[in-house]
Nucleic acid binder design. Structure first.
Length: 478
RNA sequence: CGGGGUUUAGCGCAGUUUGGUAGCGCACCUGGUUUGGGACCAGGGGGCCGGGGGUUCAAGUCCCUCAACCCCGACCA
């Protein structure tokens, strides 16, 4: 009975994955559509997830020596145009401000789609000496890209993210920083979001506009589509030359700085939904779940039940856990389903029978297991349970990804996998962009990355048969 | 940006064919009984029928127009 009602609320992911995703976003109250095309309202529960992501990532950035700043939201057209590749990459999707009040502006302003040009302009002002380097800046802001089609979290016209921008004295330091931050993202996905990723370098075709090299972490969704979950770029000295960011070295010679940038956005919330969720709703990784434990008192009108439940809440909170107690007069069964839909990792039921036995009942969201827990030392038990849930979620997601990762040695195999088995395809590539484009035209599959962990699958390119230089992860992507 | 669909109470929908008092289910509010997997009884509140313009004595319904959202493509970091 309960299952039937749940199915009425959330479309099964096998039936219609896109609708399943939309249902979860709406039913779990993560976001709502707004009156502005392509923009969304991030609701308290969804924003709380972002705040937890932000809080933890920011703490890591602080540890790695980065400082937060805030750049303007507007970019003068002339500034945006200083780096040729960069402006060409973003031109189709920038929003322009042409008027201030009734007055037409002498120079129109672009609403930032990303802030490289702003950081560069600033760096050219504040960097003079090698003593000023490195500059390790980050900002948490929203950006605007005039997307034609949008989906909540995955692609919206305005979205929240962080963008790190650094300037270094040498190419080596910049490259080190680029990879260091890519690793930060990969570790964050594993340790906080329970999402396994493939790390690697983007091909020239997929490289960020204006970058020398772009690195990525790619994750795999339940439907077998890939999601670029974070990127880190090495700009070399290209932007420095365009924006004239020079410093005096120890020998009093002028040199250009070497720069990086790296970002992770609210898109990662889409990944959390699509990597972990099931037909009953969200499943949130404990480390970023706004509510880690929900307490449902049973028969709470009976004497002592609510008091004991509140005492339990306090005990868990004092142990540093994020706890909610639902003492509303809804039926317990309703509450069970509700918090399952919202992905709360652990539910605790406590009723007269439990109190009599000095215990409570736990139910974990990831696998549905129920168990009696002694009220003595309950905080430690719950912490251990949350840790186990995290590990299990990571293991499950890793298994799913591995099961959906295929190998193709020739183009027939490749085409067949692309058509019938959504997932990553590992295949050799010659390194030519024309070949990569041909693959995309024929199969709708794009290169996701050239993984750091290379395997030798074959000697020749999966498409053209020429000598292969790289093993590439391919896939259909969000 | 193309092709299709949708828009009526917070949510899901009927009503549009044939113009004539704005409906249903859930949710919400009040009171009571309930409480270990989405309770029940009784009473109650809530609508610029997506926006604008037209036709008509009369428009949710017919005509024009604009917009938002969904699905499939194209495009895309």
């Amino acid at each position: 009975m309960a299952d039937k009602k749940l199915v009425e609320q959330i479309t099964s992911m096998d039936e219609d994955f896109a609708q399943w995703y939309t249902d979860i976003v709406k039913k779990a109250e993560l976001a709502d559509y707004s009156g502005v095309r392509g923009c969304m309202v991030i609701r308290p529960y969804g924003y709380a997830i972002w705040e937890n992501i932000q809080k933890n990532l920011d703490a890591i950035f602080k540890k790695t020596g980065h400082e937060n700043v805030c750049m303007p939201m507007f970019i003068p057209e002339s500034l945006l145009q200083k780096e040729k590749d960069h402006v060409e990459g973003f031109a189709p999707e920038v929003a322009w401000v042409t008027h201030g009040g009734q007055e037409e502006l002498a120079e129109r302003l672009c609403v930032r789609p990303t802030s490289e040009t702003l950081f560069c302009d600033h760096y050219s002002n504040v960097i003079q000496s090698y003593r000023d380097l490195p500059k390790l800046y980050n900002q948490w802001v929203s950006v605007v890209r005039w997307e034609k089609t949008s989906r909540p979290f995955l692609r919206s016209v305005e979205f929240l993210w962080q963008e790190g921008h650094t300037a270094h004295a040498t190419a080596e330091e910049a490259q080190e920083e680029t990879l260091r931050m890519l690793n930060v993202y990969a570790d964050f996905c594993r340790d906080y979001l329970a999402i396994p990723v493939v790390m690697g370098q983007k091909t020239d075709k997929e490289r960020f506009a204006g970058a020398k090299a772009t690195y990525t972490i790619e994750s795999l969704m339940h439907d077998g589509k890939a999601l670029q979950s974070g990127t880190s770029h090495n700009f070399g000295d290209g932007f420095a030359k365009a924006f004239n960011i020079q410093y005096s070295n120890k020998d009093n010679k002028l040199e250009y700085v070497h720069q990086t940038s790296w970002g992770m956005s609210t898109r990662i919330i889409g990944a959390i939904i699509m990597v972990h969720g099931d037909d009953n709703g969200l499943i949130l990784p404990p480390n970023i779940a706004p509510v880690q434990v929900v307490i449902v008192p049973v028969a709470m009108h009976k004497p002592g039940v609510l008091d004991r439940a509140n005492a339990l809440k306090e005990e868990l909170e004092n142990a540093g856990l994020r706890v909610k107690i639902d003492a509303s007069d809804k039926m317990p069964g309703w509450k069970f389903a509700e918090y399952e839909m919202k992905g709360v990792p652990v539910r605790i039921e406590i009723g007269p029978r439990d109190i009599e036995n000095n215990q409570c009942m736990s139910a974990r969201r990831d696998n549905g297991e129920k168990a009696a827990i002694s009220l003595d030392g309950v905080a430690d038990s719950v912490k251990a349970l949350l840790a186990d849930i995290h590990n299990n979620m990571l293991a499950k997601a890793t298994k799913l990804r591995d099961e959906k990762t295929y190998t193709a040695t020739n183009f027939d195999e490749f085409t067949s996998i692309a058509e019938n088995k959504p997932g990553f395809i590992k295949a050799m590539w010659c390194g030519d962009t024309e070949c990569e484009e041909a693959i995309k035209d024929k199969t709708a599959v794009t290169s996701r990355c050239i993984p750091f962990e290379q395997e030798h699958i074959a000697d020749t390119c999966v498409h053209c048969g020429k000598k292969a230089t790289k093993m590439v992860y391919w896939g259909k992507a969000y």
